[in-house]
Design a protein around this nucleic acid. Structure first.
Lengths: 239, 239
DNA sequence: CAAAGCAACATCCTATAGGAAATAGGTTCC
DNA sequence: GGAACCTATTTCCTATAGGATGTTGCTTTG
């Protein structure tokens, strides 16, 4: 077969050694940017053609994405992208985040090394100047920075399992899908700095409280998304 | 090709509609029962021959298992089963369990319906009479019952996401792999009943405390596993 | 005797082909 | 006019083949 040809691959960033890995990231991006709309059916062959690979790695990537909860698979009907968060799922997500991330903040205040505290402090300060670019780019950059800050705290908490558990929630991906226009960036930065200060000071109780308050405020900020969209969380028939 | 032949499949319980699903469960069982030893390389082709299917569904099932954390994939070297829990990972697991399952117990005490409280109470009582069979069978049955009890509380907690998060820890699978001989079954049942009583009484604080105490005690019961095995958690070189 | 280089092997990774089931549309009957 | 049935198409699911790469063992040289 002619598989040794260079082939003008469409989107393939750097060929990380395995095609499946690249395909996995590509599909994740497609889901995030609504190029694959929520609740829509995913055609494996079409996706393979689009990415210019064979269906096999696509299938493998989708299996991983299913375990991540980003797509669902109905036995003989194919894959569909996960619908947007319903209001109940949204509240559930933030309840769990408060539990998990409140714990990471508290642990970070206790366990973090001096160098780690430095990094957190720097990260909280750096996220102020995200003001360039249009609406979407700005939102994407802000979301990425927010995710980085939260992951940094989880990393420093000293519990790899807790960090993995939080990562698997894919909070920022779901929020990004749910709500495009960003609001309250200054508030977010202020809250981040308050969390960082508590961690640097080594006050576990204060760090936990600051994180929980931050998530509570973030939850309120995202709430309008449910009013402006036609019906963000109407569950498709999943018989 | 001759793929429409009935084919005397070796282990294929009921053909749940998709081969991949069955293969997934089969491999999970193989990992649990040490037929695939911890830290060992997994040969895709050999596994496919063993299960009498083509490599494709095996590959797809392994991708899901990797997302679950039961196997690891090194880019061009193949899959390996996850090593047994190290002492640090073991402690980490129970820390996270205390956090998560303490919360489910508390929520269950508050949110559960009357019917749900009934089920929990019955389940805690039923798990007493697990005494038949040889060592391994007895252990497997006990592990399954314990998992069922914990999942029941998670289900009743009213947070689907929290339940999924706990399920993804695969606590019982890891413990099962780590430690074959079971000990302290009566203690476990007593502790379960204490948790159930607190939930039935609707005392959230007591339920949380009972769950955390139970997990703390269970952690102590499992601890000898690290003394008797040669080197349960020695991390293989993972360069 | 040890270390580096080379060659053979095994294994993974990707691509393609074909059968089976579900879905959608049109037609016919009541 | 509506509903049920049938047919055609699309899509998924499984199987097989071949190229590329990593690994291992052996040989050779310093």
């Amino acid at each position: 077969m002619a598989q040794q040809e260079p082939r003008e691959g469409r989107l393939r960033p750097a060929r990380r050694l395995t095609l499946t890995e690249d395909v996995y990231e590509s599909i994740k991006t497609l889901v995030m940017d609504h190029i694959l709309p929520p609740g829509e059916r995913v055609n494996i062959d079409a996706l393979a053609r689009e990415l210019d690979v064979s269906p096999t790695p696509v299938r493998e990537a989708l299996a991983r994405l299913e375990a991540d909860g980003l797509v669902r698979k109905r036995p003989l009907s194919g894959y569909t992208t996960t619908p947007l968060l319903s209001r109940a799922e949204f509240d559930d997500l933030f309840d769990v985040r408060q539990l998990l991330e409140g714990a990471t903040a508290g642990r970070a205040a206790t366990h973090a090394s001096a160098e780690a505290r430095q990094r957190i402090s720097a990260e909280a300060a750096a996220s102020i100047d995200v003001e360039a670019g249009d609406g979407y780019r700005r939102h994407a950059a802000f979301t990425a920075l927010d995710a980085k800050f939260h992951d940094l705290i989880a990393e420093v908490s000293g519990s790899p399992l807790l960090r993995d558990t939080i990562t698997r929630l894919h909070s920022h991906l779901h929020l990004h899908r749910l709500y495009f226009p960003v609001a309250g960036a200054p508030d977010t930065n202020t809250e981040h700095q308050r969390i960082a200060a508590a961690i640097v000071a080594g006050d576990a109780a204060a760090a936990t409280e600051a994180m929980r308050a931050h998530l509570s405020a973030a939850r309120e900020r995202h709430l309008p998304a449910f009013d402006q969209l036609p019906s963000p969380g109407t569950p498709r028939d999943s018989a």
